[in-house]
Computed example of a mutant assay.
Amino acid sequence: MPVIGLGVYQNPSCKPACLAALQCGYRHIDSARSYRNEAQVGDAVRESGVSRGDVFITSKINKTVGGYRSCLDAIDDSLKKFGFDYLDLFLIHSPYGGKAVRLDAWKALLAAKKAGKLRSVGVSNYNVKHIEELVEEGLELPSVNQIELHPYCQQRPIVDYCRSRGIVVQAYSPLVRGEFGNPVLQEISTKDPAQILIHSSPLPKTQNPDRVRSNIDVFSFEMSKEDIEKLDELDRGKEGAVTWNPVDAD
């Protein structure tokens, strides 16, 4: 899975941003059924001239879908919209719905993976207790847990647990919806505060092709230990979240 991906949340006309991203070196696009732009992502990949095998595509099943059969149908519908034979990563978008719904959905994802429709499967917004349900059932663990993650909302217990289990933690909303005015960010930024945030958390979302190009230019500098410590001190726990962050769902 490429380190940095383009998020296309709230961008129903995402093809220009996707094309700009693919042209400047992105090889990961993160979509979801609820974003209503899977078809645009597929079109962008085909028009880009980049081989499908070189692009990592993620999508997610939304919280309103429950039941084993309906989850399998949703996966097939996503593949049809993208125009692809497989997806690289497919996630359960949230833990809403209760334990039985979560387990049914997870078993459906595992079945689709076994059938070759999904290369890898994971979850999003899962807390430790939600992943422990899978452990208790003796089921394969997620490859990825995608959570809101940035200096103001570091969710360290979830991160530490996932790392102990070999689950990749993938960050969404790393740009904190444009809240770049924090003095610490301004102090340690040599170019653009957004690049400091992306350096730590790799799924930036933007509709601006110029910003797409800037966001990937994050490997030309390194942050010092002191700078990282300053960012660590910005953590405000759950109060620092800027999105729905449903990690405490029953």
Rank of each mutant, 00 (worst) to 15 (best):
Y152G: 00
G122C: 09
G122Q: 04
C162L: 01
Q155R: 12
S143A: 15
R163G: 12
Q146E: 14
G138D: 03
L109E: 00
E137T: 00
S164R: 11
A108R: 08
V128G: 02
A111N: 12
Y152H: 09
A111W: 03
E136A: 14
C162E: 05
L118N: 07
G166H: 14
L134K: 00
V135N: 01
E140M: 01
K129R: 15
S120C: 02
K114N: 13
C153E: 08
P157K: 09
L110H: 03
C162V: 04
A115V: 10
V159D: 09
Y161S: 12
R156G: 01
I158R: 10
I131F: 06
I167W: 11
N127S: 15
Q155L: 13
R165M: 15
H150M: 07
V168E: 13
E136P: 00
V123I: 12
K114Y: 09
A112P: 03
P142S: 06
Q155W: 11
P157F: 09
S143H: 12
E133G: 01
E133M: 10
V168T: 15
R165H: 13
S164C: 11
V135G: 00
E133D: 15
D160I: 06
I131D: 02
Q154M: 15
E140D: 06
S143F: 11
P151D: 05
P151H: 05
V144A: 08
P151R: 06
S143G: 11
H150G: 05
Y126M: 04
L134V: 03
H130V: 02
V168G: 04
S124K: 01
I131K: 04
E137I: 00
I167T: 14
V121C: 10
G122H: 03
P142L: 09
Y161Q: 13
L118K: 04
L110P: 00
I131P: 03
L109T: 01
N125I: 13
V123S: 09
E133P: 02
I158L: 08
I158C: 10
E148T: 10
Q154N: 10
L139W: 05
P151E: 02
V168A: 15
L149C: 10
R163N: 15
Y152S: 03
C162S: 04
E148K: 07
C153Y: 07
I147L: 02
Q146I: 07
Y126V: 08
I167F: 14
K117H: 13
K129M: 13
